[in-house]
Simulated assay, not measured.
Amino acid sequence: MRTFSRWMALAVLVGGPTAYADRNDIVLSQLGNGSTANADFQAFSRTLAAVVTSATLTPPKSLGHAGFAVNAELGVVGLPSDTYLPTEREQTGSVLVPSIHVRKGLPFSIDLGARVGWLDRSSLFAATGEIRWAVNEGFIAWLPDIALRLHATQLLNTRNMHLTATGLDASVGKQFPIGGMVTLTPYGGIDLTGVRSRADAVRLADNAVVTYEELKGFSNINTRFYAGGRFIGGALQLGAEVSMATLGSVDGPRRGVATGSTEPAGALSSVLAFNATLGLDF
């Protein structure tokens, strides 16, 4: 028994570090200290912010002052092939983002919400807080439902990177009854998200220490366009949404971007996402 315990302890010591670093964990030292390092950090930060803010998944109609909803969500987010992502292993083109989303209705057509998501095959989590106000939800019959949403997302469990994404979302939609307790709500909107990101001092393989330039809030705006639909039957909710986030550009040339390209050296590719939700609405 004692021999078995020793072998188990050895397996934990050997296997522990390997298990800790999964393929999507961040390794900022891979950015190095070259001429493209700061632009690569900016591009990675804005791409990562687009990944963790890729879902709205709620139509503009409020829950009502006594309403409550809880949903399990899953996002499939495409990763740009021309943006260098300093992760433990090379990216395969997309990442899964499962999450839990809870919302509570308040008076005056206001909803409060919280979402906790996880980046698949990583130790990274993203926590989101939101407040939504349904400006019009049937008060003016000939207008669609209209809502505004303020949201803030914080990336968690990172070793030396601090990322916050804060934005304003405007959406429109219309609920259509399909007999009895069943409704279908198509909707769409635009989300403007400011990205703030900074890194602690990073030690490189040659023991040099580098600090990357900070991204400051609303001087770095991601613009996300989305469209989706929500089906409600009794208390059951089903929904799906597609979105495209345009990331603008960063300062300076980036790694892997050809100098003879007709696009600006710092131009970033869009991030495409598909999200689905299943939940209960009380």
Results as ranks from 00 to 15, higher is better:
residue 41 F to S: 02
residue 76 V to W: 13
residue 40 D to F: 10
residue 118 W to G: 03
residue 58 T to N: 03
residue 57 L to A: 03
residue 105 G to F: 12
residue 131 I to D: 00
residue 133 W to E: 12
residue 218 F to Q: 13
residue 14 V to R: 02
residue 4 F to H: 11
residue 123 S to F: 05
residue 61 K to M: 12
residue 229 G to E: 03
residue 157 N to K: 01
residue 255 R to E: 04
residue 8 M to F: 15
residue 33 N to G: 02
residue 186 P to S: 12
residue 8 M to V: 15
residue 30 Q to H: 05
residue 201 A to G: 00
residue 88 E to G: 00
residue 82 D to M: 00
residue 50 A to R: 04
residue 49 A to C: 04
residue 87 T to F: 14
residue 144 P to S: 08
residue 3 T to P: 11
residue 171 S to Q: 06
residue 258 A to D: 12
residue 109 S to G: 07
residue 107 P to L: 08
residue 1 M to D: 11
residue 9 A to M: 15
residue 254 R to H: 00
residue 31 L to R: 10
residue 259 T to A: 14
residue 83 T to G: 09
residue 42 Q to P: 05
residue 192 L to F: 10
residue 49 A to L: 10
residue 249 S to L: 07
residue 135 V to G: 15
residue 93 G to W: 07
residue 5 S to G: 13
residue 175 Q to N: 13
residue 8 M to E: 13
residue 251 D to F: 00
residue 118 W to R: 08
residue 76 V to R: 10
residue 119 L to K: 01
residue 214 E to Q: 03
residue 139 F to S: 15
residue 16 G to S: 07
residue 54 S to R: 00
residue 55 A to L: 04
residue 221 I to K: 11
residue 271 V to I: 08
residue 166 T to I: 06
residue 231 F to N: 09
residue 91 Q to E: 14
residue 212 Y to V: 00
residue 97 V to L: 05
residue 138 G to D: 12
residue 204 L to G: 06
residue 30 Q to C: 01
residue 247 L to G: 14
residue 148 L to Q: 09
residue 45 S to W: 02
residue 165 A to G: 02
residue 34 G to T: 04
residue 241 E to V: 05
residue 93 G to L: 10
residue 21 A to D: 00
residue 165 A to Y: 01
residue 177 P to L: 04
residue 154 Q to Y: 00
residue 169 D to V: 11
residue 166 T to S: 00
residue 69 A to Q: 13
residue 72 A to C: 10
residue 195 V to H: 05
residue 217 G to Q: 09
residue 32 G to A: 08
residue 272 L to V: 09
residue 14 V to H: 03
residue 31 L to T: 02
residue 81 S to V: 03
residue 136 N to W: 10
residue 199 A to Y: 01
